[in-house]
Every structure is written in structure tokens, then in C-alpha cells.
Design a binder for these strands. Sequence first.
RNA 1: GCUGCUGUAGCUCAGUGGUAGAGCACUUCCUUGGUAAGGAAGAGGUCACGGGUUCAAAUCCCGUCAGCAGCUCCA
Length: 649
Amino acid sequence: MSASRLEDGLLHSCLNTKARRRRSGAPATRRSSGWGSSPLHLPRNNNMIQADPVPQVEGPFPLSTLRHSTAHLMASAVQKLYPEAQFGFGPSIEHGFYYDFDLPEPLTDKDLRKIEKEMRRIANRSPKIEKETVSRDEARAKLKEWGQHFKLEGLDLIPEGEDITFYYHGDGDERWGDLCEGPHVDSLKELKFVFKLQHVAGAYWRGDEKNKMLQRIYGTAFWNKEQLDAHLEWLEEVKKRDHRKLGTELDLFSTHEQAGSGFVFWHPNLGTIRREIEAFWWDLHTRGGYKPVYTPHVSRESLFAVSGHLENYGEMMYAPMDLDALPYRVKPMNCPGHALIYADRGRSYRELPLRWAELGTVYRYEKSGVVHGMLRVRGFTQDDAHIFCTPEQLADEIAGVCRMVDTVLRTFGFEYKAYLATRPAEKTIGEDEIWEKATQSLRDAAAQLDLPLELDEGGGAFYGPKIDYKIKDALGREWQNSTIQCDFNLPERFDLNYTAPDGSQQRPIMVHRAILGSLERFVGGLIEHFGGKFPVWIAPTQVAVIPIREEHAPYSRTLADRLTAEGFRVEAMLEAAHMNKKIKHAQKEQTPYMLIAGEREAADGTVAVRRRGTREQSVVPFDTFLEMLKGLRDSKSLEVPDVEGASVS
RNA sequence: GCUGCUGUAGCUCAGUGGUAGAGCACUUCCUUGGUAAGGAAGAGGUCACGGGUUCAAAUCCCGUCAGCAGCUCCA
């Protein structure tokens, strides 16, 4: 299902590119594996990357060059206003640019306006940008003279043999230069472009939390105002759809100071959505040959010593509870529990593969600063499952999971890409042979399904290769939720075996997989994906029934009763109150359909159907509406179409 | 965890040293209205929490909790 079929038609086609950091100008990027990767850690980082939806028109230079030059312009303005400023790095990034400064006083938004003004003045007065190539010693001498110690450190990061260049602009006492690899635009004035400074934030020098924290100013630049405005509008749209904002507006969830940070309370509306998703999920899993398991939330600490979590993941775990002189822990993952079930008795090759699923709630002590709405929390439910199989069965099992991922993601209208993450260069466990075999199985599975795999060389976990999925939402943003991971480690640690046909004891492969990732993160993302306009099958209230006058309540009641009997979630707004208020209420709640009924409808057995977000309505026989609604629900349609019928104004 | 900022009614916010305000929402009454704000009245707040300064603190200071923007982390 293409995202363009979403009701409000928001679709942006640009794929994101990860913020590209200039080698000489920015801290070295961490390898992109960052998605969390182990059964010791199913992926659950925010991992939402904002793609730029603004079609980038051609300029005389690449947009990134313009933005980098704008960063220089900003830095020179900062120096003019704060002569004692020390400069860090100032690269262009996906949506704009930033520059890091060490300043004696924290900057405020007011200061940003001041800096913008200064930037305009400098650009007008002396717009030329000039390049100078120097020797390393000259560069060092110059930076020393300028007293720029971060830049001196930056100089040492430039590999031997590379040109060392400075870029200058400004005249006389305003001449400003920066150690920089370039390239830059030639002029800050003749070229037409627009820029805006957006916000200030803290950032560690060279991205290391042991280093000093600098002040980072973020800004953006475009070749024309239309593009800048379009970008700012897109940011507004993102803000409007923020799941935390919609969470309040639509009465979906809350968090509480009394309960602590990172714990989500699902209100009835969101509980309804979750239950529908869970029912869908269980249905798919039952059909897919999965059996439900349930495992305790608290276990003796020694269980996590065996699994290795205590050692490798201990910092993320909640502190032990001492009971009868033994330490107990709240589980941070479900896999040890499933391994215990497997190990409970001897297993034969005849029973493999075993597929066990659990919507397992886990608790992880996330750092206080990273908690974010429903997207990064301390207590959450993973849609977890483990498959225990032989190496020969692996390809088919993976293919089965890929099929299920496809079904689920398409049902919600997500496009996706899959990545094959192979063996890391160092510190892995397992024989070469099993790695090769497993990796090949992942490839085979994808080939079976014509699923293109992009390669993430060396991006696998230490205990096995994996396939990760990236999805794109209705705003063009990318998320990472689904993951399929082969694990050679836990079977080893728990000494899991099966008896092979020849009577020997063999080690099964354990496949960890999550499709939604966690209910919290998935549903949080879903709120933003749909912007609160949920499709019929998950909408908390599917139909609002509104009588025009109080005397039409009895007919409205029969409509509501019939819908309820058909299993729909109906809000019968029968109390004596203004029809207009009821319509407004239902619109605000994003109820997909309103049925408005007065004398004419009661006489004809019809309903005036009004779709959310519109003012138009059509009059159709109630049964026609009912059939359409059933169709939308049962097919899990993403559309909330207008009803064909006599239109009435 | 780090840097900066914020916390006042269910929601959005105003109030910078002198005993707490608005709009929306809510309740009641009037209005019986054909498709997104009819009218009137009312109720609702330990100004996050704890300590301090002061004759006096929502307001100034310190701490805690929670949130926001980032950074870092997410073997």
C-alpha cells in the first residue's frame, strides 16, 4: 500500500541520506551499526531520521556547499560579536548546518537574531570567499596566533599528505579565516540564497562525553525563500503530528511524575488501538505456526548471569531486589526465559523448528536525558519471538519471518528497505562455517522472496548476522523497528541441544525477531504516521451517531445499536445538546465517520454520512453504509473514503 | 548522564516581590438548532515538590522530581 493513499495525501519521496559529516570538519562518525543489535539488545533506539521532503532545486553549487559556507559566515558573525569565541567544527548536515563554539555565556534565541543580522551585514560588506593552501607548520603557527586550540586539535586530525587549506572572507579587521577542507561558494552576496538560524544546543567537543561541552548553533540555508518556507512548513507539520501532542489532544496516553520517567500509561483510546494491533499480530503468528509463551517479569539474578546480560548489559538493568537473601532482577529481555523453556527437556530434531512468541514486557534503565514520549521509554513490550531451528531450516524460517514483516508493514502503509548485516571484523563468536552458512541462509531467504537486500558489511552482532528493516512513514521519515537476528551465542550459554537423526546432540540456532519492535515505539510512530487519523480498523471510535434534534434520538439509537451489534466502536451522542457541538467534538476526535440523522433519514432508513475532515455529506441507506464500513474494517483499509450517495449540503 | 531551557486550572498560555487570571473544555439553566464555537451563570489551582532569603515569594536563591531542544549512549 502506498503512502499516497493516506487520507491527507502527505507523501514525500526523498530518501534520507544520513547526516554526512565532513571528514576534516567533524567528529568521526561512529559506524552506522548503531541500531542495536543483539538479542542482548533488540533495536529500540529512536532511530528516526528526518528526511528532507523539499525537492532541492539546482543551484550554482551543491546545497551542502552553500550550507557549509553559511556556517562560516555564521562563525565570523559570532566572532565579531563574541571576540573570545573558540571554534569547534562547523559542517553542513542533512537539513542545514551547525557550528560549535566555546563561549563564556550561554546563547539564547534572541542572540540568534542578533547573529543573523550580523551575518547579513558581513555578507553585504565583504562577500568574497578565498582559499589558501598552507603547510602544516604554517597552519599550526596561524592557529596558535589566533589562539584557536580546538582548531589546533582539528589540524592533527588531518591525515599526512593531504592539502591543508584555509578559507577566508571579510576585509580589514573583519577578515575571518577557518581551517577547512572546503569547498565553498565563491561569494556570500552575489549568489541569492536565504538562511535561518534555528536553535542552540549543547554538544560535546568531538562528540565525546568526556570532553568539554560546547554550544552548537543549528541553522539552515536554501537557494530561495520558497524552499526555506517549504522546509519550515514541513517542520511545522512534523510538530503538529508529534505523538506527544496528539497523545494529549486525542486522549491516547500519559506519563506521570508520580510514576517516574519513561513509563507510559495507555488510555482507553490507545488501549483500543493496541488491542486491535495485538489481535492482528496474534492472528498472523498463529497462522505462521507460532505458539504463545509467557515468562515471568522477575527472575533470580543468576539467570541473567548465565545469559550474559548481567555482565554485558548490567548497566541497563534495574537494580536487584533481595528476597530471602537472593538477588532478583526485572527482565530487560525475554530471550533467557524462552531459552529456559527450550532447555526444560530434551528436544528432538523432529520437533524443530520451534516458534515461540510473546508480547513480553521488559524494563531497561535508560539514561534520564534520552527518555522521549513513547519512543524511548524504560518499560515497554516487545513483540518478541524466538525460533529454534537447525542450520538447514534457517533459510525457510527467515523467509517466513520476512513474509510476516512484509504483511505487517504493508498493512500500516509503510514502505521499507531491508539490510543484511554481516560478520563484524573483530570480537565475534562462532565458527566461520556457521557464519557463512547463516549469512547465506539470510541471502537465500531474501532471494526466495525477491526481497532486495542492501549490504551492511560488518554490521552484524557479535553472535550472528541479521536482517534489519528501515521503514518510511507518511512524512518521509525513516524508522527502524523490524529485525531478524541469528544467534549462536545463547544456545551455547544455555547449552541448548537437540538429538539429530544420527543420535548425536546438536546445537540449534536461535533466531530472535521482532516485527513491531516494541508496542510503545511502534504505536508512537504510528500516531505520527497517521497524524492521529487512524484507519477504520484501529480507530478508537469508528462511528459517531448524531441526531439533529433530541426527538431523533430513538432512530439514532437503533443505528448505534446495530453498529455495536456488528462489533463496531460507536459513540452515540444522544444527549440533548447542539448538533454542531457534537460534530465539532467528533471532528476533533478524528472519528472516521459521523452519521447524522433527522426526520428525513428516520423516515427513509437512511443516514447522512460525513467523513472526518470534510464538510460534505452524502445520504445513503444505512445498510449501504454498514456494508462499506465492514469492508473497510475487515480489509484493514488505509482509506477512509467518501460514501457514494446523494450529496446534500 | 551532560549543556541550556521549562514546570501556573483538564488543554493552551498571561502574570517578575504585596494574598491567582484569560480563552477553550467542563457543569447547570435558557436556546430545538440540517452539518466545526448560540446566550447566561457556575465550578475548577498546596502556582511540580522540599528548603532558604524577605515584613511579604508563583515571582529571588539552592536542592529534588518531571518535561523540552540537543549531545552522548542504545555491548
